[in-house]
């Protein structure tokens, strides 16, 4: 009889101890791919360009540049200016860009460009470092992403063309997601794209195949540099349409704008 008690109590302990299993999710590690390596003409400087992926798409794209001296030592305080450039024969134009700050983080200078169309682009990079100045032109073939990630509208408020680019969420989950987009106003000849801070953005996610939305979203508001941040909630996986309305000074600047994401 004592044995039985023992068996029963051991069993009970086993049952109860197996009751608490919370699952832990691992944070993905970001690995950068080297997509270009070369020297800056007329200087002893070397340049390496990194991206999260080898293929490049018409979207808000972040790059990292490493600048090294002839001996291969990283330079921490180079001045870098990037100009994306596309030559379409009949016309030439640039794209919105966010240049790196003056000092490197982990030997890397981070910058972003928004490729507003597919095709052959060049990243024209001017570098001043160790009292030397030179330029490098890195060719990039820009492909179309699965769903458009850069769009534009002509504002009915001021007649200007605005580009807006999708930034977050990059890995959407069912739940609350940080949402970020960047808005740029088109300058003369499409050679400059100053960041825009004037918009009031309305956000309404929708699942087109089911006709439902999601609750408790936070419309993106300007946080600086043309970036707008909010929250988008997904109640399930699948194809979502993020409907956006752009208001400028009380008038609807761009309506029926949207991004689609599928996960």
């Amino acid at each position: 009889m004592k044995k039985l008690f023992l068996i029963v109590s051991v069993l009970f302990a086993v049952i109860m101890s197996s009751c608490k299993k919370d699952e832990v999710q691992q944070q993905p590690v970001i690995n950068l791919e080297k997509i270009y390596e070369g020297s800056v003409e007329g200087t002893g400087l070397k340049v390496e360009l990194y991206s999260k992926q080898i293929s490049q798409y018409a979207q808000y794209s972040t790059f990292w540049i490493a600048v090294k001296d002839a001996a291969g030592n990283p330079i921490q305080n180079a001045t870098i200016n990037v100009v994306p450039f596309m030559d379409m024969g009949s016309m030439q134009h640039s794209a919105p860009v966010e240049n790196p700050s003056a000092s490197a983080v982990d030997n890397l200078y981070k910058f972003s460009a928004v490729f507003i169309m597919t095709g052959n682009w060049a990243l024209n990079i001017n570098i001043t470092a160790n009292s030397q100045t030179g330029a490098v032109s890195i060719p990039l073939n820009i492909q179309a992403p699965a769903k458009p990630k850069v769009k534009s509208f002509t504002s009915s408020a001021d007649g200007s063309k605005y580009f807006y680019a999708y930034i977050e969420p990059t890995s959407p989950v069912v739940g609350i997601n940080d949402m970020e987009i960047a808005v740029f106003k088109t300058g003369p000849m499409m050679m400059t794209f100053p960041p825009d801070s004037s918009m009031t953005i309305g956000l309404e996610p929708e699942m087109p195949s089911m006709g439902h939305g999601s609750p408790n979203n936070v419309s993106p508001v300007h946080i600086g540099n043309g970036h707008y941040k909010g929250k988008v909630n997904f109640t399930m996986t699948g194809l979502w349409k993020l409907n956006l309305d752009f208001m400028s000074g009380g008038t609807l600047a761009g309506e029926d704008q949207y991004f689609e994401i599928e996960f």
Binding site: V174, M236, T237, G238
Partner: peptide, 23 residues
């Protein structure tokens, strides 16, 4: 004493789109 674990989910299929999944 008791311990109850529950889980249920739903997957919907729309041709040409990724499956829609939620708990």
């Amino acid at each position: 004493a008791s311990s109850v674990f529950l889980k249920a989910d739903m997957t919907m299929y729309q041709p040409g789109e990724l499956p829609m999944y939620m708990l």
